[in-house]
Design a protein around this nucleic acid. Structure first.
Lengths: 338, 338
DNA sequence: TTGAAAGCGCTAACAA
DNA sequence: TTGTTAGCGCTTTCAA
């Protein structure tokens, strides 16, 4: 590993000159000098030492990417195709922008702040964190932070969040089900905060605006980690006559439900209609194909990095609350009721 | 951000003393001193600056994790549940060991070497790289490297690789198919190097040892990225009478094949048997459930980090070529032929 | 057009 | 038991 100083010695020049050439500050440098320096850089395969640069510049070119770690129903969060796809996209865009990605899986604000400080990261992308943690992160760091799919307190802080227009999408889906003749639609989720809350609201609003009544018992909550998924599914099986359609807040659950029902001789969509939300690799590959809402994780990641880069460069952001729109994907899990 | 020097000034002591306390080098430090220092550390929430530490110690506590980026048939690599699960596991174990994970997606040796040098990483985990790149990486860095699912030249270098016993697993699967009465078994893969090659060999050996002939045309190769997957599937559909069972080198392809056939009124397993390899989230959730080989990506990640930590600490490794064993998971895609 | 020198925060050999 | 000091590699201000 050759250093600037060593190269300077080889050429018989000062480190400043070499550094200047490296950084293209060559307005006052002679052509021959530039060439000489570049030749040595090439020849010795000089690679800058980022730690040293970070120390002296107070900027590391590291982007901290934090994914809230959660085991939902025993499922490793990285098994969710949605998360992995968004991470892949973020990595790609960070690399292309000439930055480095430090990946960390934890939702705890303290951990995030620690990472930020130890490595002096230039920016942070936080995925799926809770309001409390988001608030703490923003309050205790002066680094730019982009949130993805997070939710916040109404505390006056201007969080920059890239999300989906969950409510509108859920509304759209509910509308679609009603148009297909469904009057008794249940909603299923594993929590009632954040995106799932938004989705629920879109569902409830969709019912209401179409003159349908929301019944408390049609909200099926899987939130307790104590109850195995199988038991939840069994319960849905038992209650299957109570509704004609089941709106699941994620493709993953929709798939589980459909599989369970089909395995137990209940046909989807003939006996009951089931829809999901996300359109991940699971939904499009199951049979019957899942009717769902498509969102674009790759785009989400791309926008997140783009916004972060603007913040790092102190350029203004037009919008702080970015909501991508989702697309209704009609496939084979909804039956038309005449 | 308080520094060691500032804390030393506050206490009225030298930086060395503070540093010693931080690092637990307190054999010769008075109890009161230790307490005083710890109090200030606590009070001012001191967080060490890793860049500075890296610079002076020549060790960064960063583990570079490199995933060979490849778009197989237009599929984003991170959409593969296998990759994301292994990454999740690696992250978890790196964190727990007190290290940091820098994630980078590229298989090019030069990129990897660049990353290693710029950040002075303490170790490298390389996933799915080709022999040429593996060789170059090892030759040009003196940092410990653990490979996962890589393949190598027979060049005398002692690569440390964590893999699956692909050949034996494929053999096991072939054996199973033969026991179920299949005599005409085709094999499908998208390349013929690395793990897929091993799997093919296990398949071929399985045939041979059971007195069956391997027919060249029963090796179905999807390797050209120019031909869309759909065309490959169509071809398999056309040739479906030529074999009674199709052994796919991955769950992903098995799922595509099964879906395509079922969508075209060919029943699996009644008309044709299909098996996969990996047992990812796709295989267990499709219908009919996929018969496949289960490997454990979480374990792979864990072992990789454990080995790397041993290398970093200069402890010897018992085995260089670690092959986890896979498990035959019998589900619903194989028909018994009487 | 180029160079000298200080400083970023931390560590460790050595001195006291 | 604690302190002094040089140095890790790079940047940048100011001087030449």
């Amino acid at each position: 590993m050759i250093t600037i100083k060593e190269m300077a010695d080889i050429i018989g020049v000062s480190p400043t000159t070499v550094s200047n050439v490296i950084h293209g500050r060559v307005k006052e440098t002679s052509k021959e000098m530039i060439e000489k320096v570049n030749k040595v850089i090439e020849e010795y395969n000089y690679i800058p030492n980022m730690s040293a640069r970070t120390l002296s510049q107070n900027s590391s070119r590291i982007i901290g990417v934090v994914l809230k770690y959660q085991l939902i129903k025993g499922k490793n969060i990285m098994q969710d195709p949605f998360n992995s796809e968004i991470l892949g996209s973020i990595e790609k865009n960070i690399s292309e922008a000439g930055y480095y990605m430090m990946f960390y899986s934890s939702g705890k604000a303290d951990d995030v702040l620690h990472l930020t400080a130890t490595w002096n990261v230039d920016g942070l992308i936080v995925i799926g964190a809770h309001a409390k943690d988001c608030q703490k992160i923003v309050k205790h760091t002066n680094k730019p932070v982009i949130f993805i799919d997070c939710y916040f307190y109404n505390d006056g802080i201007e969080y920059v969040n890239i999300g989906l227009d969950d409510k509108k999408c859920a509304y759209k889906m509910t509308q679609y089900l009603i148009e297909e003749g469904h009057k008794n639609i249940a909603f299923l989720a594993d929590n009632c905060i954040g995106v799932d809350e938004e989705r629920f609201r879109g569902y409830a609003e969709g019912l209401q605006e179409n003159g349908l009544l929301f019944k408390e018992r049609n909200y099926i909550n899987l939130d307790s980690d104590l109850i195995p998924l199988k038991d939840n599914l069994k319960q849905i099986y038992r209650r299957r006559k109570e509704f004609t359609a089941l709106f699941c807040a994620s493709d993953y659950y929709a798939m589980e439900v459909v599989n369970y029902l089909m395995d137990n001789k209940i046909n989807v969509p003939d006996d009951i209609s089931v829809v999901g939300f996300d359109d991940n690799i699971l939904g499009s590959n199951m049979r019957p194909r899942l009717t769902t809402i498509r969102q674009n994780p790759t785009l989400k990641g791309k926008i997140a990095v783009k916004c972060l880069m603007r913040l790092i460069r102190k350029q203004p952001l037009k919008k702080k609350n970015i909501r991508l729109s989702g697309q209704l994907i009609i496939r084979d899990t909804v039956r038309k009721i005449e």
